[in-house]
Amino acid sequence: MTNLFFLTDFSVIKPDPGLTFWTLLIFLLVWGVLGKLAFKPIQGALRKREQDIQTALDEAKKARDEMSHLKAKNEELLVEAREERSKMLKEAKEMKEAIVNEAKAKAKEEAQRVLSNAKQEIDNLRMAAMVDLQNQSGMLAIQVAEKILQRELKGDPEREAYVKTLVEGIKLN
C-alpha cells in the first residue's frame, strides 16, 4: 500500500526538462506580450480614468460651490430688491399723502379765500345798499322836508328863500 502512487508511474512529480523549457518560454512570452500590449495600457487607462473621475468630481464640487455662492448672492439681491421696493412703496405712500394733504390744504385755503371774497362782496354790496338806502332815505327826508317846508313857508317868502338856499346847499352836497 505504501507505494500506491509509485506502483504505476506518478510521472507528474518528475519535472521533465522539455516541459520546463516550454513553460518558461510560454510564460515569458505571455509576460512580455501582455506586459507590453495589455497590462501597461490597461493600468494607464485605469489611472487616467481615476484622474478623470477625480477632476470631474473636483469640478462638480467647484461648480456646486459657485452655484451656492451665486444663490446666496441672488438671495441677497432679492432681499435688497424687496427692501427697495418696500422703501419705494413707503415713499410713494408718503408722497401721496403729502400731495393729498397739500391738495387738501390748498383746497381749504381756496375755499377760505372764496368764502372771504364772497363775504367781502357781500359786505361791499351791503355797504353799497346801505349807502344807497341812506341816500334814498336822505332824499326822501329832504323831499318830505321840502314838502313840509313849502307848505309852511308858503306864507313867508323870506323864510322860503332861506330854505331854498339851504336846500340848494344840501343838494350841492
Binding site: 507505494n3 500506491l4 502512487f5 509509485f6 512529480i13
Partner: peptide, 9 residues
C-alpha cells in the same frame, strides 16, 4: 505529504 509519499516509494 509529498515527503511522506516519497518515503513510501
Amino acid at each position: 505529504i509529498v515527503v511522506g509519499l516519497l518515503q513510501g516509494a
